[in-house]
């Protein structure tokens, strides 16, 4: 961005002016624009930000920023069936569905869930066994890939979409897609009205801190908690607005200890 100088030599482009105003506003105060950093991994509590000392609210909390982090027993101690049951409870609470399948059962499960769905969109990186099963069942499969992206009209004409997922957060019933080849670009999981999303048991974490530790935020991320919804009419929740009105989660759990990390 080019800085323009006013006649008196002081840059007066918007960038320079706004930054100068910010520096001037902070000039008189403690720190003066170079304050301490909040450390998520620091021992002890965060800097006191109010009349209640940080950390007071959580007796026995371990060293850390005061809240429950990815290393906490709250997170690491919740595994296996307890973790999957929590995820299921929270996803169902949003009026989405959860069905379980072993890896080998996923193709048949997808066929069941998508019976009568019409044309089905899949990202190019989806497990070929799943796609073959759908085709064998007579479903028209539309493959969206970087080399041959579907048009918006194609996506709009499809009855459903199947994707994988990056991870799921049990505590909030949230599934995160990160645009990996089995999940596709963001539009494919948005435009079709019915989203079938496959979540691997090993990708389930309990809370937000553990989820953030696993995610690369520079990938395009879509966090999904139930079907689209609105609270705009009298602040009551109504499911189903612009995003998919049906969300069905297939939770893949084999015998080898679900949720182990």
């Amino acid at each position: 961005m080019t800085a323009q100088a006013s006649p008196d030599g002081v840059p007066d482009d918007a960038r320079s002016v706004v930054l100068a105003r910010v520096r001037a506003a902070l000039a008189g105060s403690t720190g003066g624009g170079t304050g301490p950093s909040f450390d998520h991994a620091a021992p002890g509590a965060p800097p006191d930000a109010g009349p209640f000392a940080a950390g007071d609210a959580l007796p026995g909390a371990p060293a850390g920023p005061g809240y429950l982090t990815a290393d906490d027993e709250w997170e690491t101690g919740t595994t296996g069936e307890a973790l999957l049951a929590l995820l299921t409870d929270r996803v169902v609470d949003y009026r989405a569905t959860v069905t379980r399948a072993r890896t080998a059962e996923v193709p048949a499960q997808l066929v069941r869930l998508l019976a009568g769905a019409g044309r089905v969109v899949v990202p190019a990186g989806l497990d070929p066994d799943w796609v073959d099963a759908l085709r064998s069942a007579g479903t028209t499969v539309l493959v969206d890939g970087p080399d041959a992206p579907l048009t918006l009209a194609d996506l709009d004409s499809a009855g459903a979409v199947v994707t994988g997922s990056r991870l799921a957060v049990a505590e909030t019933g949230t599934i995160v897609l990160d645009g990996s080849p089995d999940q596709g670009r963001r539009a494919v999981s948005l435009v079709p009205d019915h989203h079938v999303c496959v979540v691997r048991g090993a990708d389930v974490v309990r809370g937000l801190p553990a989820a953030m530790a696993r995610l690369d935020v520079t990938r395009p991320l879509t966090w999904i908690s139930g079907p689209s919804a609105t609270s705009d009419i009298e602040l009551s929740r109504v499911e189903g607005v612009h995003g998919p009105r049906r969300l069905e989660v297939v939770l893949v759990v084999d015998d080898d200890a679900p949720g182990q990390r």
Binding site: P220, S225, G243
Partner: peptide
């Protein structure tokens, strides 16, 4: 517990 959708892009 969580809003239905959060988008992040870089």
């Amino acid at each position: 517990r969580m809003n239905p959708y959060t988008s992040m892009w870089t």
